[in-house]
Design a protein around this nucleic acid. Sequence first.
DNA 1: ATGAAAGCGCTAACAA
DNA 2: TTGTTAGCGCTTTCAT
Lengths: 343, 343
Amino acid sequence: MKFEAVTIKDIAKALGLSTSTVSRALRDSYEISEDTKKLVKEYAASINYRPNPIALSLKEKRSRSIGVVVCEIANSFFSQIINGIESIAYDQGYNVTISQSHESFEREVLDVSHMASRSIDGLLISVSAETKNFEHLQKLHAQGLPIVFFDRIVPDIETHKVTTDNAAGAHAATRHLLENGYRRIAHLGAAEYMTITQERLRGYKNALAEKQIPFDTSLVKHCTHGGMLEKEVQAALDALLALPEKPDAILAAADKLTTNCLRYLQKNGIKVPDDIALAGFSNSDLTELLHPPLTVVKQPAFEIGRSATEMLLQLIEARRPVTEFAHTVLPAELVIRESSLKK
Amino acid sequence: MKFEAVTIKDIAKALGLSTSTVSRALRDSYEISEDTKKLVKEYAASINYRPNPIALSLKEKRSRSIGVVVCEIANSFFSQIINGIESIAYDQGYNVTISQSHESFEREVLDVSHMASRSIDGLLISVSAETKNFEHLQKLHAQGLPIVFFDRIVPDIETHKVTTDNAAGAHAATRHLLENGYRRIAHLGAAEYMTITQERLRGYKNALAEKQIPFDTSLVKHCTHGGMLEKEVQAALDALLALPEKPDAILAAADKLTTNCLRYLQKNGIKVPDDIALAGFSNSDLTELLHPPLTVVKQPAFEIGRSATEMLLQLIEARRPVTEFAHTVLPAELVIRESSLKK
DNA sequence: ATGAAAGCGCTAACAA
DNA sequence: TTGTTAGCGCTTTCAT
């Protein structure tokens, strides 16, 4: 489709027809005779004609492509989500353009503006860990760009949202730890202001409350970069382990947090679960092979991707402005393994 | 950029100028007076004007976007490559569109044709494990679409290529196993016809030859889907372990192969490295946390992505047809851990 | 049943 | 210095 790019005009010239006749013939218009249709179609096929999608986009004012912004592709949770997104988008003839924020607000703003100016028809986004200001999204949304939030949502913007039942996931994991005899459970969370962080913390607190365990602020640490930086996890754990009354278990509330937590413990020769138990959110398919096999809260990533995409396409293809928005909450799954077993 | 989409025409009308003057003013043309430029620019900024990239693409006959086809995003090796690709492309103002073949030939052909018809300016591709027929790529290449192959390359198509020194990587790992006293080293490879499979097998053979260990065909197994399917790995290992003389070590020649191999061994209660040693290609950042920590051949994924993208952009932006092609071979790194230590 | 022409947003050759 | 116009590839009235 590069150098010689066949156009409708070429076909018209070769066949001694007008471009409009060719166009109509190709689209099977009723006003074109069967003979002409056949002639045009066969010739088009023979020279491998492909309509130029850019010209089409210009005309139709839509690009049939959707943008996806996530913090990291190299994170199982997000790559699984992307698989879900693709599975739907592709079938519907939509292209998927992916951008990573690497948890940087600045980068996210750039990504989003780049995408918007690239004429995407809609946006799927899970905001970066640094994002506290949502103007860039608010503006686009106000301008009419269909947006669906997933995972890390923006509560203030009225549109479809898809999340995991984070509170329930954290709750189940915490209760599980409690039931296994752990009492001083530390909570390692991502950036404080993120919705997912708050929800997971809430689930943790509720589980404690149910067992009448007092909530101890000193057991809660936050890593602003969601565990991306090994040293922030290190700092948090250093602090936790320096506590007069050390925790006997850790609930890590994000993928990187969980694995980097394990990394820290291994490096420091701390046995899991003997010295300290560990459970955490993770979607990696290697968690069962870790040392020890990790108890994880697994999110329905593929489903999140599918669901968000379905919603977005619905928004994009809506005839009239949509005013009713759904917030789909999908269940998390607690997978119990050795890292959190009985004291 | 949706509903109200400001165009140059709007600006022209509002300011009582012609569209061409506006266009030139925005692009800082020397033929426009400073006053007019200022006027236009300020007004454009005030109403948040953004040039329509689709119209630009149509005119310039380029989309400033490149296509990437890999088998799986959820594979660390490829997600790291994509990070490398993005790091370059983004800076140069190129968009990256990613597609996954999921190791299916059919899907790859679809992906590629979809991308080509989407008017990408160039293609970065690592072919699927099923791909033995390269017509779909050959055709595009012949038509003038710039293509750069990485990792799983197509030798017959003359263009830039970037790979890891697969033979050297496999060689180093095999030698390491030999030096640690292992003598019956099995080789678990991906699809036989793939270049990477052959190269890695070659490195393995050479290392054996250097130590005068006879090459034993029965110790070599291939998994056509590159380890994606757990059961193909299972079948291969079942066969290996049923051998009259069992292997005492395994060299797995692909990411999924390595981890699924470990999965199999763990499931079957086979101790690593006591019962059997394991080393393999992997780029996961969790390999050091596995049970046991895995000895891996790590590919310079980020660099592969960078390098391939630089080459592609060079091809895209070349003034004259490029006739000299480079094949960049980057070194792999052997990371020695417990899974392959002394017998 | 087919063709001519306008227009999507933008740039650039040509005029003025 | 600014305006007019044509054209990128395609669809779609409006003529014929």
